[in-house]
């Protein structure tokens, strides 16, 4: 097994605030890797550093052996890294169909329509809204749209930021199954960030636990499930507060 993604000693700042404090991790091809951590642990910041939305002060991100840190996110996406960001971030006034097609923006091959059908087979609920503006979708449907949109890139690696956030237990279950299926059937390697530890440990092969910007534990998900710390801190507590969206872009955009 080779490393598809490798982070080495990443440090990322928000202005003077150090949000990632020397994180190293690896994701092997074909795996589902879960990252657990409480609010503010730095999970989202880490994904943003991987995809290029934020530049690390120190450290390297390697994808297929190639350094990709501090590049523009669109360039990183075109390497085959699909990103399902925290809070879905769909294009609200484009139709569902257009949202999905935008997912394939960088592709030139003739199989976009085929993949569109594929997405609809994974998410039949979206089929009812093909020509409607995406902002009319429910939260769960928007999450499916966001995953489907990332799938349209035909990604080798998919970054998922709390896909279970705000969804009913049944939907969380459904999303978990879809993630497993995408991994098995479409051979997508997955880096899954979750507060829902049960779900993350169920679908994951390998897991990391983050606390205030550091990795404090790493093991196979099987063993993490049995670790007492995890049982106490993550599997015991379930509630997830609604967080305001934070944004921070290091001189990459106009806002």
């Amino acid at each position: 097994m080779t490393d598809l993604l490798e982070l080495r000693n990443i440090e990322t700042y928000y202005g003077p605030i150090m949000a990632i404090r020397g994180v190293s991790m690896r994701v092997q091809e074909g795996q589902i890797v879960s990252v657990l951590g409480a609010n503010g642990a730095g999970k989202t910041t880490m994904l943003k550093t991987i995809c290029g939305a934020m530049d690390p002060q120190k450290g390297t991100v390697r994808y297929q052996g190639r350094e990709i840190q501090a590049r523009d996110p669109d360039w990183v996406a075109r390497l085959g890294i699909g990103h399902v960001p925290e809070g879905r971030e769909i294009f609200p006034f484009l139709t569902v169909d257009e949202n999905l097609r935008m997912g394939a923006f960088s592709r030139r091959d003739g199989e976009i329509n085929r993949d569109l059908e594929l997405v609809y087979t994974y998410f039949p609920a979206l089929k009812n809204f093909v020509k409607q503006a995406a902002h009319v979708l429910s939260g769960g449907e928007q999450q499916m749209l966001a995953i489907g949109r990332a799938l349209m890139l035909r990604p080798q690696l998919m970054l998922l930021d709390e896909p279970s956030l705000g969804l009913s237990p049944l939907l969380v279950q459904e999303i978990a199954e879809i993630i497993t299926r995408l991994n098995k059937e479409q051979h997508v390697t997955v880096l899954l960030v979750e507060q829902n530890a049960r779900m993350a440990l169920d679908v994951g092969d390998f897991g990391y636990v983050m606390e205030v910007g550091r990795i404090v534990m790493e093991d196979t998900c099987e063993r993490l499930k049995n670790a007492t710390d995890i049982q106490e801190f993550y599997l015991g507590m379930k509630d997830q507060g609604v967080r305001g969206r934070r944004r921070w872009k290091q001189r990459k955009t106009w806002r």
Partner: peptide, 13 residues
């Protein structure tokens, strides 16, 4: 509509 998401899907913003 959503600059960050446009970046994420590979649109050269």
């Amino acid at each position: 509509q959503n600059q960050l998401a446009a970046y994420y899907v590979g649109i050269p913003v």
